[in-house]
Design a protein around this nucleic acid. Structure first.
Lengths: 196, 196
DNA sequence: ACCGAAAATGTTAGTCACTAACATAATACG
DNA sequence: CGTATTATGTTAGTGACTAACATTTTCGGT
């Protein structure tokens, strides 16, 4: 293991931990980068070397690499939105049970900060890219249609997550996502809780 | 006519004109808000009272109010994506001939500025809202499905506009939009130049 | 046409995210 | 163990954006 990148990872983690704690304690706007850096025991320059902007401390996840493969695994004969729909449902089952609370917390923080709320779509740019690559045969460039479908599905997914976070006591995320994709595809809504 | 709001409109226009000219001359980052305000003959405070952020000088259009009505005019029995698709095609025909060059210039500026490129989706938040309202029966609140479809269509539309701006010598925007929406709906691609 | 009220604009001074330049400390590698 | 490399700190700056208050402009009523 490289000692340099190791220390860098430690700094990253320390900064993110301090930042999220301070955001929770006193709010996002009221927390300055300098304060985060001080709490994390680094200078504010190190902060910016780890996170290009203050917002990026929150916008940071990556379940995404998996999505690309799941989309690609669907038969190419399916309509693209259906491929993304089924791939998303499949991938979600694998992580939802274990990460439900963490996901809820992160989304809640995002929604509570106007400046970040606007960037949720951008956050899903990674999902967008995953969909795009999964829909594109290997070795080819994605066409306009593929890019548009990927972007549209990522937006729809983001909307589903937002909606779920607002009603997470009455609905489960997989159900919401299922309903959203059904609507996108012009299909009737599925029965509630009809998933296995 | 109210003289106060009238002057305000004049300021807005003067600021936007000066800003776009300076951006074209010396680039976006190299142009300061103070400079724009000076050129427009106002103080920088007036700038911020007209445009909440520097980016909003560029992110500002408003063909959008029309879209809502066009969507609402489509029969509610149609699948929502189709309603948005046909409404967009109808609305575009009304303005594309006259505003083609202006649109191209604006989009080109957006794409040339990384900070703005990330906010294109957000710019289409206005289109999103228009779609959402048009899809929602009057007096009701939009459901998750409606919000997601509206967001997805706005993203797809943005992607179409971006793609068109990159190949505007070989393709017309209405054709690109048509292809994108066909792909979203899982339909085969329409014939090129098949519109009237 | 004039006057007080209300709203828009200007002035000033400040905060804070973010960057560039250079100094210094930590680490790898011969 | 010494030297090149890389991470980190320090300092000083820019520029977007805001708050508080002074000033001018515009409006409705007389």
């Amino acid at each position: 293991m490289d000692g340099r990148t190791h220390t860098r990872q430690r700094n990253r983690a320390a900064i993110q931990e301090a930042a999220l704690r301070l955001f929770a304690e006193q709010g996002y706007e009221a927390t300055t980068v300098a304060q985060i850096a001080r709490e994390a025991g680094v200078s504010h320059m190190t902060f910016f070397r780890c996170f290009p902007t203050k917002e990026d401390v929150v916008l940071d996840d990556d379940y995404d690499p998996m999505l690309e493969e799941l989309v690609r695994a669907r038969p190419a004969a399916e309509p693209p939105v259906e491929r993304v729909h089924r791939a998303t449902m499949a991938g979600l089952g694998q992580v939802y049970e274990h990460h439900r609370e963490a996901l809820l917390g992160r989304v809640g923080l995002l929604l509570s900060i106007p400046g970040l709320r606007a960037r949720i779509g951008e956050n899903l740019a990674s999902a967008r890219t995953a969909f795009e690559r999964g829909l594109t045969p290997e070795g080819e460039e994605p066409g306009v249609e593929t890019r548009a479908v990927a972007a549209a599905c990522a937006s729809a997914l983001a909307e589903a997550v937002i909606a779920w976070s607002e009603v997470h006591e009455r609905a489960e995320l997989p159900d919401v996502i299922d309903r959203v994709f059904h609507a996108l595809r012009g299909l009737p809504a599925p029965a509630q809780g009809s998933r296995p």
